[in-house]
Computed example of a mutant assay.
Amino acid sequence: MITAVTTFKLPKPVTREEARSIFLSTAPLYRDVPGLFRKTYVLSEDGMTAGGIYFWNSRGEAEALYTAAWRARARDKYGADPTVTYFESPVVVDNVAKEINSRDE
């Protein structure tokens, strides 16, 4: 499993309410994306950094999303270039499902 963290250094701070509105406007784009099983939107306490934490089945599926078109859409929406950092996720604790997952790719 792969966790990808995206961040945007915003040109000016946004409030939680402004961020929520922006996030809700883009959330439908992430439904049914192959290999993506969860996305969590994030906003720093000072409102200067926004981003997402994405949970993927594989790195290839993650990389298929973060295209030049995705980056351009993010730049238009947030006024900042995104960064994407990938992490291996060998073990995931899921307290909702009451499971500990350790799937191999």
Rank of each mutant, 00 (worst) to 15 (best):
F23H: 07
S21Q: 11
T26R: 11
D32F: 08
E18A: 08
V33H: 09
L43C: 05
L36W: 02
A19T: 00
Y41L: 04
T26F: 06
G47D: 07
Y30Q: 03
Y30R: 04
P11K: 08
V42L: 12
T40M: 06
L29P: 00
T40S: 06
R31N: 12
K12I: 07
K9G: 04
F23N: 09
E45S: 10
M48W: 07
V33Q: 09
L36K: 00
T26W: 13
Y30G: 02
A19P: 00
G47Q: 06
S44A: 15
F37V: 15
T7E: 12
L10S: 02
V42T: 14
P28D: 10
D46W: 02
E45K: 10
T15S: 15
P11S: 11
D46F: 01
D32S: 09
Y41R: 04
A27L: 09
R16S: 05
K12Q: 15
P13S: 12
K9S: 06
E45L: 10
A27V: 08
P11A: 13
T15Q: 04
E17Y: 00
L43K: 02
P34G: 07
F23M: 07
F8Q: 14
Y30M: 07
L10A: 03
P28F: 10
F8L: 14
L36E: 00
P28K: 10
S25R: 13
